[in-house]
Amino acid sequence: MSEAVPSPFPLSTTPMVRAEAVCKSFGHVDVLKGIDLEVAAGEVVCVIGPSGSGKSTFLRCINHLEKINAGRLWVDGRLVGYRERGGKLHELRDRDVAAQRRDIGMVFQRFNLFPHMTALENVVEAPTQVKGVRKDAARARGVELLERVGLAERVHSYPNQLSGGQQQRVAIARALAMEPKLMLFDEPTSALDPELVGEVLDVMRGLAESGMTMIVVTHEMGFAREVGDTLVFMDDGVIVESGDPRRVLSDPQHARTQAFLSKVL
């Protein structure tokens, strides 16, 4: 998709994600120091940066697992975690926050599958418990999703009977079961043995081709180059540089980007 076209996304439509000067601190530690980012619907943004630069924290802010301290964050045109009324921000109730999160799928570095449930039960859990989808319908859809990630044979396996790559693919199917508009990936292949990385990236590539909006924190530069529409380099709580992945990877403008890439490439 979108080979070599610099900005294939019309700026007039509502962006899927819009961050304006997003700041987050834990106590006295400023982790995010003003993040500005726009992600269009259907865009795949890859985020790279050194460990501790705030990549995970930023993803967690997008689905309100962390509360931001300053700035504004919108997903699909709606403010995340707050409602603005009369120039004042009101915190959303737990129920409304949960409703916002349904539209955002998240895939974790350590999979976080529910170990007491089979692959299929993992996938069916949220649709039945959150959306109230009927059990048989949810199971049929769950089997479909597991087939889509190549796990038709492992529907009844428990997570500890699956390899890391298979577990991560179940986790992706579990997130997709909620039919999200946006998928967040936090280093989805970092905990995998090298020979298992490919199968997960293949699933993600297929997802990108199907038009899913994705923000992917990754160290897989090949994936970023081939699948990403935009590459964002974060360091020390700010976005240092962003743009077309090929351009950023081959011709980084900032010294910090150059230093980082020289270490990882």
Binding site: L65, D94, A99, R102, I104, F108, F114, V130, A175, M178
Partner: peptide, 27 residues
């Protein structure tokens, strides 16, 4: 129980009560 479990459950939109009952307590 690994805090990642409750986190994954809330990321899926499960309420706090359901997260406790269905995900955390069984483990």
């Amino acid at each position: 129980v690994d805090p990642g479990q409750a986190e994954a459950a809330s990321a899926l939109g499960l309420s706090r009560g359901k997260t406790m009952r269905r995900i955390v307590l069984p483990q």
